[in-house]
Design a protein around this nucleic acid. Sequence first.
DNA 1: AGGATCTTTCAGGGGATTCTGAAAGTTGCG
DNA 2: CGCAACTTTCAGAATCCCCTGAAAGATCCT
Lengths: 186, 186
Amino acid sequence: MVTLSAMARQFVLHWGEMGHAWGINRTMAQVHALLFVCREALDAETISQVLDVSRSNVSTSLRELIDWGVVERVHPIGDRRDRFVACKDVIETFRVIIAERKRREIDPTIVLLERCLADGDSQEDAFTREQLAKLLDFTRMLSDWHAQIERLPTSALLRLLKGGSSLLKLVGGVGGRASGSQKESD
Amino acid sequence: MVTLSAMARQFVLHWGEMGHAWGINRTMAQVHALLFVCREALDAETISQVLDVSRSNVSTSLRELIDWGVVERVHPIGDRRDRFVACKDVIETFRVIIAERKRREIDPTIVLLERCLADGDSQEDAFTREQLAKLLDFTRMLSDWHAQIERLPTSALLRLLKGGSSLLKLVGGVGGRASGSQKESD
DNA sequence: AGGATCTTTCAGGGGATTCTGAAAGTTGCG
DNA sequence: CGCAACTTTCAGAATCCCCTGAAAGATCCT
């Protein structure tokens, strides 16, 4: 296979753009998209031809995708060339990506905010300190929340996502007033 | 004010990097960080000096931040120059950003996937079709879920985020088996 | 209207990122 | 071992994105 159906091509291009918007290399996202829609494992040479990028570029992209954990290398018996498959489960892929971004971005942000607050002079700059403290609280909350999500089996995660409305009613009713906004600009 | 405390400077730099990792212009993220930790509104000239970037760059960044909805222009009486303030509420800011990214990335993805599936030949390419259909399902689910979240008042959102563990127990217990993975690779 | 003050736009330069081809590295087999 | 098949690395080229300064556009005051 050295050519793509119109459907697949459209998707690959769009996925490349999306990746780019999220700070991910366009080619890397395209390689992922391609593997995602292909039932059988592809070798690097084929990917290079289909996407029309250099063999070395494909090699780099594949390494990163494997690092992220959304693609794996497959060794077919009786063939020396490596082949690659993407995780075909959307939710699992989503989960892996979230976990990785948390590790790379949320965690370091928590560390930095903690250091800022620890180092900073508490006399000067009271407002900055206050803001950073609020941001740290929130970031930690996200982190905790993620830790919970992480442990859920796919079935429960699906239920959480699908059952949005019922959950929200629940949350809204738990602690008293559910409406009204609390402005906290001082 | 033409100089920044060490605390604020660290934060501004880090926020710039984070923004960059998420596909947002570094300077724009720095401007946002700066406004976020400043109690009083700043004028563009001051921002330009503090961050050491050109006046025009600041102008562009501010326009985008206003577009996003996380910064607003303030007209102080008796002064012709504009000043700018960031939303100081972390959750509100988060909410606005999520909404905007949904609009810019999730929504177009749904449209594209729908078109792919509508246009595509259903004979050839059955597996691709299947994968895209699953992805579309998931993306719609995210979209619905976001619509629910969007409506929540801050207090309820906080409760949802903070009460992670109890919610999860709940979800885990609602529909029967909570463990076991459903492999869908055929 | 004319000028002072401030803002926005945009073409072009400069810096950062991505891509490529060539060369070096790895692996399996006779 | 030596060769064949394949993969990875990396310096430099190509590309893209961001930033700047200059000029044009607002707005307000006298």
